[in-house]
Design a protein around this nucleic acid. Structure first.
Lengths: 189, 189
DNA sequence: GTCTATAGCTAGATAGAC
DNA sequence: GTCTATCTAGCTATAGAC
């Protein structure tokens, strides 16, 4: 009863961001109110506006990864290995209570133009650009985006659609099939 | 000035359904109000509740396809051809003003449990089940769902993310790469 | 640093006039 | 068959007390 834990700006901010990430991921931008998020964080809704200015800005900060998502390793790393890394990160990784990669969750809010823009930048420019550089041939960008489509689709099928076989299958078998599908993309065309 | 076109229950219902399909697809369930939809249809918002009872029911009816989506052809049709048909239907087809397949659009409303359920039924049971029957091997369902993931991902990348290479590429090249990726799924494992 | 109170607006839904 | 008017409840956001 001595340490009140309130009156701590950093902790409150962090609690709001955590609660926002979870709620926004599950229900989409329009599906949640700031009151709900603040209640989850154990504080008042007015603090959302004090710390973030608007619900929109809270969304932006909550869904932005604090650390660059996945490094691609050295310049001579095989494309197939990078693809397998992306699979583990986007699809197979245990995501805690949210249960899905932020990029998959953001699809729920893709009615908003700014969210679509964020999706494009993060998927194409951050995740796939480095991958495309390692691909031979002249339509490397297209093949990189087709790999991105497979990754995104797998994430959606598992955590949004809840498709039974893909949800129940072991990671090893999924990795095996994924590698076979990705192989035609990494060869020179 | 004689045919007033109003006072026509069927036409009003249809106009509401069309407007709803477009708005819900673009903005998601929570991103639109019934007033907007009614205004698009040129009628009053009260008619939404008269004809459909609730916004939720309007969504359900607007996004439900009136005709079964895609037949798979005879029982001896090769799996590869069916896959190519699905690609054309889900990804490459011109969708008019909506611009994307309803199943892709429904991802924007997947914060709602009933929408997720609809997605699972239509993707897994209606689209993929018939495809899985034609695949050899014992994890046919898993491989069918991985094909579904690729299709859904391609639809998302093109019409939600707006990835540049996939959006600009010609259908022929996309079909070619898609077939190569799908091939490992249709062979016996 | 946090909360109460509330402004200002828009939402879904209903009743009843025409 | 359609619209006007309205109810109730929710929303984001702000002002100011503590």
């Amino acid at each position: 009863m001595t340490t009140r834990r309130r009156r701590d700006k950093a902790a409150t901010r962090a609690a709001l961001l955590d609660a926002a990430r979870l709620r926004f991921s599950r229900q989409g931008f329009d599906g949640v109110g700031v009151r709900e998020i603040a209640a989850d964080a154990g504080v008042d809704a007015a603090l959302v506006f004090r710390y973030f200015g608007s619900k929109r800005e809270l969304y932006a900060q909550a869904m932005r990864p604090e650390v660059p998502d996945v490094p691609h390793g050295g310049p001579d790393r095989p494309a197939g290995e990078i693809a397998a890394d992306l699979l583990r990160e986007v699809v197979l990784a245990d995501r805690g209570p949210a249960g899905e990669h932020p990029l998959v969750a953001m699809l729920r809010s893709s009615g908003r133009a700014d969210v679509r823009e964020q999706l494009r930048v993060r998927i194409c420019d951050e995740h796939l650009a480095g991958f495309a550089e390692r691909l031979p041939g002249d339509d490397a960008a297209l093949r990189a985006e087709m790999l991105g489509a497979l990754l995104l689709g797998l994430g959606v099928m598992r955590s949004v659609v809840g498709s039974p076989a893909l949800t129940g299958a072991g990671p090893a078998r999924i990795e095996e099939l994924f590698s076979a599908m990705a192989a035609p993309l990494t060869r020179d065309q």
